[in-house]
Write a protein that binds this DNA or RNA. Structure first.
Length: 468
RNA sequence: GGCGCCAUAGCCAAGUGGUAAGGCAAAGGUCUGCAACACCUCUAUCACCAGUUCAAAUCUGGUUGGCGCCUCCA
């Protein structure tokens, strides 16, 4: 399996630290509002990475944090006149709802920054002891130039950064030894939540939390650290500096970063205000469609979001779901149970789609290509099956499609809802009307059912229905 | 100013040296009372220029256009 490592700027063969195990950490959202669809991209992408590893038999320890202490959370709390904790708890709960809708597996552990302050204080203390950090008026800074490899992830050198000019201007008035130093701990301001520390009552800087939580739940060394590409610098660069300075060993072997989701080819971000929340999208689409849409491009390519593209994704996803529905219908329609030798051969022929699929996934999780294999399988199924074949054959085909879509977190085999008795009666009546060529009545019934969200399809094998 | 990415059909999107996957849309057809589903048919020389090579979308150089990071941000 190959994956692109931001650290080396190339695809590398994945070799786990420990056989058959993957330790991965994905930077999670700051919870001060509903998550937007840009936040959803890494969640979907790395959940898919996790699912593929699990499919390959790895045991994945997947840790993803919630940043629940932050300026924006405090600001929101003040606006609403409630506690910061209330805000973060609320949006963690909402975020989990959205994640469930997108079929994102809960992480093995979802740590909260506010519950790990103790570990942060410890790590900061160690960094000061070793000369990697220093305190000025209650604020603790990381001494960036002391960490010789600073810049290795983002491939920047310190002098370039400094000559950039902007950082100098912005940080001109504080007490840093060097403009590139960053905050590990800062004193509270009036009314802010705070924790005790040897330096001041205050709260941790943003970067230290991930270093600490990763260490606590996964150990000093992990396999994969992931997040959005904007986190490469400074967040992940700083994490490396903190963790490697404190632990004295390589922090993460592989660094994976997803590209951005754009709207009208512009970056979507909270500060630009051009964003959609996942919740908004869920009012119009099944979030499965959003997930399918996100996986239709490679995770390292920018992806443009629009309603038109969502519609296309919806139709495409329906094509796969229809194939499965059709198979389920055939299972009910056929009388043959056991699979014939001929059918076994037809089934064996599907292995090419599975191997294409795996090949795509093993090449840095090329989900776009993997989806193409699924479509090819769907086409094969649609052109191969007919009602004289066996239940067993159809069941195998369903299982195959489900296997491949499930790795992508796409649900195609929705649990059958029971048809209400009166709906069944209506379908029966419509069939009689059609037999009598009373098409007015049959269309009436179809329209009526449509109003209730039931779509009827007349096929050679009888009437099929599905939810609209 | 520094660092970096991208440019493939109407749209989306794979493909990174051997002659263009897949999906959506559009068109024609089969099936069907109609519709829907499904199936069949059909649509590209890969931004531009120059070079390397028997061979380039794929490598090199340049041009144009778009974007990202360097500042909270997935």
């Amino acid at each position: 399996m190959k994956l692109y490592n931001t650290l080396s700027k190339r695809k590398e063969e994945f070799v786990p630290l420990e056989a058959r195990k993957v330790k991965m950490y994905v930077c999670g959202p700051t919870v001060y509002n509903f998550i937007h669809i840009g936040n959803a991209r890494p969640m979907i992408v790395f959940d898919t990475v996790r699912r593929y590893f699990e499919y390959k038999g790895y045991e994945v320890n997947y840790v993803s944090n919630f940043t629940d202490v932050d300026d924006k959370i405090i600001k929101k709390a003040i606006e609403e006149g409630v506690s910061a904790n209330e805000i973060s708890q609320r949006y963690i709960a909402e975020c989990k709802k959205d994640m469930a809708g997108m079929n994102i597996k809960p992480a093995t552990t979802h740590p909260l920054a506010t519950e790990e302050i103790c570990g942060m204080v410890e790590m900061i203390h160690k960094l000061i002891e070793d000369g990697y950090a220093y305190e000025k008026s209650g604020t603790v800074y990381f001494r960036t130039r002391r960490f010789k490899e600073y810049g290795k992830l983002s491939h920047k050198n310190l002098d370039d950064l400094q000559s950039g000019g902007r950082s100098l201007l912005i940080t001109g008035e504080d007490e840093k030894e060097d403009p590139l130093d960053f905050v590990l701990w800062k004193p509270k301001k009036e009314g802010e939540p705070s924790w005790e520390s040897p330096w001041s009552d205050g709260r941790p800087g943003w970067h230290i939390e991930c270093s600490v939580m990763s260490k606590k739940y996964l150990g000093e060394q992990i396999d994969i650290h992931a997040g959005g590409e904007d986190l490469v610098f400074p967040h992940h660069e700083n994490e490396i500096a903190q963790s490697e300075a404190a632990n004295g060993k390589e922090f993460s072997k592989y660094w994976m970063h997803n590209a951005f989701l754009n709207i009208d080819n512009r970056k979507m971000s909270k500060s630009l205000g051009n964003f959609f929340t996942v919740r908004e999208i869920s009012e119009k689409y099944d979030l499965q469609v959003l997930r399918f849409f996100m996986l239709s491009a490679h995770y390292r390519s920018p992806l443009n979001f629009s309603e038109e593209l969502m519609e296309a994704s919806k139709t495409g996803l329906e094509r796969i779901i229809n194939a499965v529905d059709n198979l389920k219908h055939l299972i009910g329609a056929t009388k043959t149970v056991a699979m014939s030798a001929e059918e076994q051969k037809l089934l064996d022929a599907t292995s090419v789609y599975v191997s294409d699929y795996e090949k795509a996934m093993e090449d840095d999780f090329n989900t776009a290509d993997a989806i193409a294999s699924i479509f090819e399988l769907v086409k094969y199924v649609n052109t191969t099956v007919h009602v004289e074949q066996s239940k067993e054959f159809f069941q195998h085909l369903i299982a195959l499609i489900v296997k491949l879509t499930d790795i992508l977190g796409i649900i195609v085999d929705k649990a059958e809802e029971l048809l209400a008795k009166d709906i069944e009666i209506l379908i029966e009546e419509r069939q009689l009307a059609r037999k009598d060529k009373n098409f007015q009545r049959s269309d009436e019934i179809r329209d009526e059912l449509l109003k209730q969200g039931i779509v009827l399809e007349d096929t050679r094998e009888g009437v099929k229905w599905k939810k609209a």
